[in-house]
Write a protein that binds this DNA or RNA. Structure first.
Lengths: 215, 215, 215, 215
DNA sequence: CATGAATGAGTCTTCATTCAT
DNA sequence: GATGAATGAAGACTCATTCAT
């Protein structure tokens, strides 16, 4: 870990219950302020105030504002990653037609659980340190997906990691579009079905027995 | 146009050659500062300095910082939209296997022409006014794609606009991932092929003659 | 209170001794800067500097420059109003020849106690929010004077509030002229006598027993 | 004239008709901007724009913003002064009961002819250079009034200039209060009568034959 | 002469961070 | 440990004034 990364690390581990509660409150507060005020007005004072603690105390937990926001973002991403990890292990060895729906469902469930949070954090992800964090967690998720894909009995991927990257980011795109309101309203009900169709079709181009036409 | 949107409008039109040059310099400078310093440090002073003009002059062209950034973003998006529009008209009435590659190629060409610019503007797109702008241009692009899809002789879409939304944002996802460095390095060479594969597979699930196996 | 007025309200109450001292220092500093530099150069930085605090601290007490100046003006006006209120209650039921001198004396004492302050605040009273504030406090003073006049046993006023308005503003005029240096220097010694004469003469035109000629 | 005063002098005399017209347009524009935007936003650019000329041209006529505003204020004050001068000459040698109403009427007519202008200029009068200008013109008016008073056959003033000062500023006070909205609305109709009463009563305390008791 | 774009010093205001209580 | 007042650097934006066209 270089010094830049070190500067974003929390100051203390939540060894005490109180600490954990305070940190949770800070995260929640940060997301609320982010949502209500925007990143530009998401100040330490406001976050602390909403979390019910003093600014001074905030600095007991995080060395600076960016570290707090990074932590919030990280927790969010790690949650998603865990869900992906889990489903990938669960679907290990299963055929594509089972993998795809499971992956889509898991991703949607994780990402849309708290839409406000997901949406608010896009801005954080675009700021200093955000992209690195996202890239890091993303690569972990891609690795999990790649491992899962590699285990599919009915398909063969030249480079599972590339396929996983494309597959995953092809899922991320529509979900982000949904959260940011770039999608027509009608989509809400059929998003999952569409993503399943998209992913399945894509992965099935790698079916092992290419007796039938492909691509 | 409501007053919020009005606040983001440029102040004067570049009727004179000098104005046009100044505005171009401002856009370029903004993107450079964005890239080198990040959105948080992308200040009017810095932009003006890099553009070789005074802050005061900057404010003769844009009423505020957000308006300038919005203009830069808009120009970028409009460029993309024009490319999409064009290819969609060009592929009108062609079958899916021709549409998909053309669309992918056009999108990649437009979006990756200036990677630095594309990448820098993601942060802007996440800020005040950005999402609205993106949504607006996005919907125009989706409409173009939907029209194209509806004209495909070999497929039938229940709701072309939904399919277009998914298709387009499924393209956007991987490209964004690429620009933000979330993709493995090896992908660069095969991104286009992968996206063509993704898009074709997805759209072909809507093939008109389901004599062959699908999905 | 409408939002415009709300924007001029102080941010925190001086509950602590230190706060009260800081606020007092700010008021004094504001008047000094006003006097030495004029309203146009009465900037928050200069006020804070002279008050011996940082600009940031100034903004902990007042949301903006106008609010600070409004507070200074208000305190001044309220002081005058209190003096007027007091003398009006004191003279309740007394005859005109006692009322007039008492009112003049009280007004002069209050307004000329700190000539520098009184003079400096004229500029503030003419700026955004000033006129409203003055009008408001003025009406309170006029009401007090009107009540006093109505209680005079030796006079009868058709509309005490009109008479009070005229009487009061007729006092304000010369005092303002004095403070702004529009009056010849010789006046200083006899101003009070002249104002008493003016006010008494005016009010006595409303004497109850008009056995003698009255205009 | 010291250098400070010199700096406020117009740059060119209105020898040409066009100059005179432009200057008039500038004055009018200045008052409009003053009224609509307030002194703080009464900028040279805005004034020039409203006057239909360019900023550059504005600087052909006045060396700086303050000079323009001073000129506007001066013209206003000189107009009032001329009216006062005129009525004072007209009433020369007449008794108090004729002087007072004439003076009041003349003053009100002059000051209330363009209420917007009168009101707007109070802010200018409070700024740099304003007070001096006002004091200067005021003293000329007071001199005229004093001369008139001294000529009254029915009164004797120990120091006509003091009486004139008080009398004049006692008129100024209520009129200013009216323009700034500090007076009850009902006053509008009876202001003149009240001021006549006020002034007459005051001046009559100096009646030559004190056969009757008065103050 | 008129024009109005350019200048940049100067304002107000915010906010991350510290530290005395 | 907690608090929140104080700090002051930094940013957005304005505007009087100039001068090339």
């Amino acid at each position: 870990m270089n010094s830049a990364a070190a500067a974003l690390k929390p100051r203390k581990s939540p060894v005490q219950a109180r600490s954990a509660a305070t940190i949770a409150a800070l995260h929640t507060a940060a997301i609320q302020v982010l949502t209500r005020e925007g990143l530009g007005r998401c100040t330490t004072t406001r976050i602390a105030e909403r979390a019910g603690i003093s600014v001074g105390s905030l600095y007991q937990y995080y060395p600076n504002r960016d570290a707090l926001l990074a932590a919030v973002l990280e927790r969010h991403l790690v949650g998603i990653a865990a869900a992906i990890d889990h489903v990938c292990r669960e679907c290990h060895g299963k055929p594509i037609p089972e993998m795809a729906p499971a992956l889509v469902r898991a991703f949607l469930a994780a990402k849309l659980r708290d839409r406000e949070e997901s949406k608010a954090l896009y801005a954080v992800a675009a700021e200093r340190g955000g992209p690195e964090l996202v890239a890091q967690v993303q690569s972990r998720m891609v690795a999990a997906v790649a491992a899962m894909l590699a285990s599919a009995p009915d398909a063969r991927f030249d480079d599972p990691s590339i396929t996983a990257s494309i597959a995953f980011s092809a899922l991320v795109g529509p979900v982000r579009a949904l959260l940011e309101g770039h999608l027509p309203a009608e989509i809400d009900g059929c998003l999952e079905a569409q993503l399943v169709r998209l992913l399945t079709a894509y992965l099935q181009t790698y079916l092992r027995q290419p007796s039938a036409r492909r691509r």
